[in-house]
Simulated assay, not measured.
Amino acid sequence: MSDAVHVKICGLTDPDNVQAAVAAGARYVGFVFFPKSPRNVTFAQARALALCVPEGVAKVALTVDADDDMLHALTQEVPLDMLQLHGHETPARVTALRQRFGLPVMKAVGVAGPEDLAALDAYGKVADQLLVDAKPSADAMLPGGNGLSFDWRLIAGRRWACPWMLAGGLDAENVAAAIRLTGARQVDVSSGVEIAPGKKDAARINAFISAAQSATNTFPV
């Protein structure tokens, strides 16, 4: 991976903000397929958005405990580069989906305390990437995109068997500090670049990517 921090803008719902993310230098764009989310898109909407994305920017589908039929329909209709699993999928499920659909799989793992780090080790052995996110509360409606962060010191300088991405409560004001503290080379943002739930803002996207890419990482790559 290059020295530049790679940024993923997740939960995109309209072409203007897809273009804003791409123009600002995002390396990943994410589309949410979870009806409870204010960022949820249909397959048809996602296909139209994905066709706006140039080569070299990865198109990521966020799903939550999706079954094979849903994933088959999704991957048939929407041109994708990666699946992001944000539910309770087991390591065996991650392995099975990689084999069945032939796409790289990113597995989200929620972190609240030291007891959650073992899951990162386990999923890091089977996934293509890890998304290290804040663990939602027990009564949360959404598995992610809640604007919550966690104690970044828990993962400071840690590495796993695959590349990883930091998420959870990031915005333009704190992303540089998060990168410095954790050694992250990739970061993910959704609510941190919104003016309302599900409504991204081009200026906030620009500010976030600029802050992330200008951050100084004190850990070895």
Rank of each mutant, 00 (worst) to 15 (best):
S2T: 12
K8H: 07
Q19L: 13
Q19F: 01
Q19D: 13
A23V: 04
G25I: 12
G25S: 11
V29D: 10
V29M: 11
G30P: 07
V32R: 01
V32L: 03
V32F: 04
F33T: 08
F34C: 03
P35F: 05
K36E: 14
S37W: 05
P38N: 10
P38C: 10
R39L: 09
R39S: 06
T42V: 08
F43Q: 15
A44Y: 04
R47G: 08
A48I: 01
E55P: 07
G56D: 02
V60C: 09
V60F: 09
V60H: 08
T63A: 00
V64K: 01
D65H: 00
A66G: 07
L71G: 02
H72T: 15
H72I: 06
L74K: 10
E77P: 01
L80D: 05
D81Q: 09
Q84D: 05
H86C: 15
H86F: 12
E89Y: 03
E89A: 01
E89I: 01
A92V: 09
Q99R: 14
R100E: 13
F101W: 11
P104W: 06
M106I: 09
M106Y: 00
A108D: 11
V109D: 10
G110D: 06
G113D: 15
E115P: 04
L117N: 06
A118S: 14
L120P: 05
L120E: 01
D121N: 12
D121P: 04
A122L: 13
Y123R: 06
V126M: 05
P136E: 10
P136Q: 11
S137W: 10
D139N: 13
A140I: 11
M141E: 14
G144S: 15
G144H: 11
G144P: 02
S149Q: 03
S149H: 02
R153E: 13
I155H: 09
R158C: 12
C162M: 10
W164M: 06
M165I: 12
L166C: 02
G169W: 05
L170T: 09
E173Q: 15
A176H: 03
I179K: 05
R180N: 13
R180T: 14
T182V: 11
R185I: 00
V187S: 00
D188H: 08
D188C: 07
S190K: 04
S190Q: 06
G192S: 10
E194A: 07
E194K: 09
K200I: 05
A203C: 02
I205M: 06
F208K: 08
A211N: 12
A212L: 05
S214E: 14
S214W: 03
A215Y: 12
V221A: 15
V221T: 11
